[in-house]
Amino acid sequence: MRIVVDWDRCTGMGMCESLAPDIFEVDDDGSLILHTEEVTQDQEAEVREAVAACPTEALSLEGPIET
């Protein structure tokens, strides 16, 4: 499963970072740093929460979890 960021929508609000800090981080200039694109099974729950929490709906998930 892969994280897809709609860069036109993302404004660096940071909810994703507060829910899944190993994966998302907001940089000093407000841009989003994606530490990894591929989502593991362990990360799935928190990544789904982060996707749902994005106020600009800039995050989505694509494809199945690699096992």
Binding site: G14, M15, E17, S18, P21, V26, D27, D28, G30
Partner: peptide
């Protein structure tokens, strides 16, 4: 105007 900071504290508060 410090967008990198506040969410790091949100985790601590939670």
């Amino acid at each position: 105007d410090m967008p990198a900071e506040v969410m790091k504290y949100r985790r601590l508060i939670g």
